[in-house]
């Protein structure tokens, strides 16, 4: 095979696998930002929190990191529900969501990150999953299990979430809260309770994504920063509240970034990805605001 073509194919495949990881990171935000209109800029910081807790627990127990992150989900759910209660009490209820709310999550992000530095140190943490060293070779294409397993688990979890949103009563209530809060009141459902529940799910996904992240790459306290723009870009490009769109955008994002990295060098890939978001924001804002109108 032509070496350039092989490089491209490999770039695309590992980009898709990377996209699976991005989808996990963005799915939670698609709930909080896309459906609940809560601009949780600290979402990636919570993902890193999950990653580092998984790394510590893995070092202590030797259990599979992805299993650990699933076991952690209830704790993250509780954390998210608690955070939403604070946010609602001080901002949403007061109608001061815009600037103060943004600054609140910005501050929370800082507290989480610096807290992590103080607790576990600034150095990188990693895990060694049992399958991490294995790579399947399909012709010229490498498929490392280190990428494949987290991507698969992440996509499965997103699939489960989509089923939950579509078919359970609570799930449909979450989807409804995105569209019309008053309609829920008429159905005698407390929108605040629904939003609390949904925000908890959103953070549980942040924890899960953290588990996937730490399998893929070593993580330090500041690793969340590069993800802020990425996950917001993915959620916005995916059409805000649509999980399917979110997954597609994540895969596309992973491919663009990865192909750029393989052809121009990894230091350029963030600029390309963020340039995409800037373009989307500048050219198609009406698509972004469609739901709010």
């Amino acid at each position: 095979m032509d070496p350039d073509l092989a490089l491209l194919l490999n770039g695309v495949v590992s980009g898709l696998l990377l996209g699976g990881l991005y989808a996990a990171a963005a799915a939670g935000l698609s709930i909080s930002f896309g459906m609940l209109d809560v601009v949780n800029i600290a979402h990636p910081a919570f993902m890193v929190l999950g990653a580092l807790i998984v790394a510590l627990l893995w070092a202590a127990t030797g259990l599979d990191p992805l299993l650990l992150s699933i076991l952690l989900a209830p704790a993250f759910w509780a954390l998210g529900a608690g955070l939403y209660v604070i946010y609602h009490h001080f901002f949403e209820r007061r109608g001061d969501e815009a600037i103060q709310g943004l600054a609140f999550f910005f501050g929370v992000m800082f507290i989480v990150e610096v807290g992590l530095v103080l607790a576990v140190g600034p150095e990188q943490h990693f895990v060694d999953a049992a399958y991490a060293a294995t790579t399947w070779r399909l012709g010229e294409i490498d498929v490392p299990l280190r990428m494949l397993v987290p991507a698969t688990v992440a996509l499965a979890a997103i699939g489960a979430l989509a089923l939950f949103l579509r078919h359970s009563f609570t799930g449909r209530a979450i989807a409804a809260v995105a569209q019309d809060r008053d309609a829920l009141r008429l159905l005698a459902i407390d929108p605040i309770r629904i939003k609390r529940l949904a925000f908890g799910i959103s953070l549980a996904f942040a924890g899960l994504a953290g588990g996937a992240l730490v399998v893929v790459q070593p993580v330090d306290a500041w690793s969340g920063h590069v993800f802020i723009g990425r996950v917001f870009a993915i959620v916005i490009m995916g059409g805000l509240s649509s999980l399917g769109g979110c997954v597609l955008a994540a895969l596309a994002f992973g491919v663009v970034e990865n192909v750029t990295a393989s052809f121009f060098g990894p230091s350029w890939s963030p600029a390309v990805a963020f340039g995409c978001l800037l373009l989307v924001l500048a050219v198609r804002p009406q698509g972004l605001f469609g739901r709010m109108a």
Partner: peptide, 15 residues
């Protein structure tokens, strides 16, 4: 407006 502008400026910083 609002959050979108904030996120765009964050991206600008990375670029």
């Amino acid at each position: 407006r609002g959050a979108y502008f904030a996120i765009a400026t964050l991206c600008l910083s990375v670029v």
